[in-house]
Simulated scan of single mutants.
Amino acid sequence: MLLEITIPSPGESITEVEISSWLVKDGDFVKKNQVIAEIDSDKATLEIRAEESGILIIKAKKGELLKVGEILCLIDTKKKTSEKKNISTKQSPSAKKRLSQYKIDNKIDNKIDNKIDNKIDNKIDNKIDNKIDNKIAQKKHYAIQAIPSMGTKSLINRSFNVKRLSKLRRKLSERLVSVKNETAMLTTFNEVDMSNIFFLKTKYKDVFKEKHGVNLGFMPFFVKSCIKALKEYPNINSMIDRENQINFNYYDVSIAVSGPKGLMVPVIRNADTLSFRGIEKTIKDLSNRIKNSTISIDDMTGGTFTITNGGIFGSMLSTPIINPPQSAILGMHNIVERPVVILGKIEIRPIMYLALSYDHRIIDGKEAVGFLFSIKKSIENPINTLIGSENELNNYFEL
């Protein structure tokens, strides 16, 4: 029986996908639920699994565009069962001898086929490589002729590689350019003293991890600080829809996470209702799904505000790009010990620069500056602004 494996629907608005990779070869035996291919949609990379065990017959090449519902491959489910039946019913010594010979012949045939296939593949690859090399050589020749001699006989290696952008990367490029062209984006900055956050993190990180099974990081403090600031400045938790402005009365915070396929922005739903434990566990779960390529489209749509942390890569300062259709994004950066003036004296403090990029069409500069200053106050004095008092610390961390 030939089982058809078709392109599933990654989401309501997506009608076409690109085959990003085949994890098995044509003619391979695949097991049920085995991951056989990956496809790129406009928003995410999805895995395709074998629905039954059998021999794979590939119908579409890597890089090919297919519509939802089109046939990706076939699985011949009959071959494996017929082979098992033949093996189980041959019982006589002469039959076993023939079966052994049959297996040997099959191995020899497979080796011959593989050698032939490899030779053909090598010839094709060599032809392609030769064509590319010839074009590169021609370009080098013309470039060298155009450059005046500098008195050296050696040639500098100026080779390059060309690869097609994935569908996900192409769509991301389009969205980033559209944001720059279609919004009045502006960025404002501030700095925050992380001393008190470091104190709380150092004091509670071990018992927090022992109790909840996740690390106590900086992100819950910033998520909670952002929600507090969004309640004070509701226009930042809004979006433009043609001639209308939509203000959200809930807080779905998007978190930028770097994955194997690029930057993904999953959403922490109803972040205002979650504890520190809930925020950390949600981030850990979403990050694991991004690394394992099991994240869904629904996990990355519907956010109302975004936080990105370039500091984990060592970024000192940046101007983050708004995540459409949202109207603002907070950029966190690395923490560096800097000299600051405290009550007339110079002290060394762990300082982080913050950046807020926002759509100036609906968010005024006064609101943006006030929003960042609210976050600064919450981070620099978390016990009074976020927690309430020192007596509430154990309850706040659910210890």
Rank of each mutant, 00 (worst) to 15 (best):
S94R: 08
D252R: 08
L186A: 12
P148Y: 05
K62D: 03
S159R: 03
E337V: 07
V223I: 14
S327Y: 07
K119W: 14
F29K: 02
V68W: 07
A229W: 01
D113K: 01
I290E: 06
K345L: 08
E243W: 13
M219G: 13
L274D: 09
H360V: 03
I14F: 13
L230W: 11
K345C: 14
G314Y: 14
M239P: 10
I128G: 06
K103Q: 07
Y102V: 04
T6E: 04
T15H: 14
F397K: 00
S315C: 02
M1E: 04
E280I: 11
E51H: 00
R169T: 03
I322Y: 12
G69A: 01
K203W: 02
S296E: 15
M316L: 12
I108D: 02
D40I: 05
T77Y: 00
F199L: 15
D129C: 02
N215R: 05
L216I: 00
D129M: 12
M219V: 02
N323Q: 03
F160W: 06
I14Q: 13
L56P: 01
F199A: 10
V265D: 02
N249Y: 05
F189V: 04
V336N: 10
G11C: 06
W22R: 03
I387K: 02
S195Q: 01
N249P: 03
K139H: 03
N244T: 09
Y251L: 09
E367C: 11
P320G: 09
E4S: 12
I295V: 06
G69L: 05
L216V: 03
